Simulated assay, not measured.
Amino acid sequence: MSREIILYIAESLDGYIAETDGSIDFLGGGAELLEDETSYQELMAKIDTVVMGRTTYDQVVNELAPGQYPYEEQTSYIITSRTEDDSENLIFTNQEPVDLVKTLAKEQGKAIWIVGGGSIIAPLVEANLIDIYIITTIPVILGKGIPLFNEFNGPINLTVENVYVKNNMVYTTYSKQ
């Protein structure tokens, strides 16, 4: 049995996950609002593994949750070209995202959360490895930035599972057909 691969991410109305300089300031009070959002708690109960790029990791530890790594209870895989020392639940790797996720999907465990960023998400989308897309749309139009989806040889057909509005944000869940 293969583990479920989940992309849970926020984007601007025009499809950007970060501003051109990598800033995620447009999320505003997103971290505080997540505490009132049950889909985040549901996600955390389903997963035991997170996969993210180095830039996303740096944003988490330096901006979003300084002093308290929020995924201590999960095994985190940080895809990076920099050499780092691993700890019990924090693994730095230079493995390609598709190879890493295919390997992890074959292992025993709960679902795998793809946290970000764009260079991690793009090859996984193109390889059609993501089973569930949970996308929170923030009502702001950036005009430019780092897109959630890059150009690729598609299509990938999805089914809309759920849509709702909470805290002035639109939450949409899609599943792979």
Rank of each mutant, 00 (worst) to 15 (best):
residue 139 P to S: 13
residue 103 T to R: 09
residue 88 E to F: 00
residue 85 D to H: 05
residue 93 T to N: 06
residue 96 E to M: 02
residue 144 K to Q: 15
residue 172 T to A: 12
residue 111 A to C: 03
residue 144 K to E: 15
residue 67 G to R: 04
residue 129 L to S: 08
residue 157 N to L: 13
residue 85 D to Y: 01
residue 143 G to R: 04
residue 81 S to W: 07
residue 133 Y to S: 10
residue 156 I to S: 08
residue 157 N to I: 09
residue 57 Y to K: 08
residue 80 T to N: 00
residue 131 D to W: 03
residue 120 I to Y: 00
residue 92 F to N: 00
residue 83 T to E: 15
residue 163 V to H: 10
residue 101 V to C: 02
residue 140 V to D: 08
residue 132 I to Y: 09
residue 147 P to Y: 08
residue 101 V to S: 06
residue 147 P to W: 04
residue 149 F to M: 13
residue 172 T to G: 11
residue 131 D to F: 08
residue 79 I to Q: 00
residue 98 V to R: 02
residue 159 T to W: 04
residue 88 E to P: 01
residue 142 L to D: 12
residue 67 G to D: 12
residue 146 I to P: 06
residue 59 Q to Y: 11
residue 170 V to Y: 11
residue 107 E to N: 05
residue 64 L to Q: 12
residue 127 A to F: 08
residue 102 K to G: 09
residue 84 E to V: 02
residue 169 M to K: 14
residue 132 I to N: 10
residue 71 Y to K: 08
residue 133 Y to F: 09
residue 163 V to Y: 13
residue 167 N to D: 03
residue 166 K to P: 08
residue 172 T to W: 13
residue 172 T to F: 13
residue 74 Q to C: 07
residue 105 A to I: 01
residue 79 I to P: 08
residue 76 S to W: 12
residue 122 A to M: 11
residue 91 I to H: 07
residue 78 I to V: 01
residue 89 N to Q: 04
residue 170 V to R: 14
residue 138 I to Y: 15
residue 112 I to G: 03
residue 159 T to N: 11
residue 74 Q to P: 05
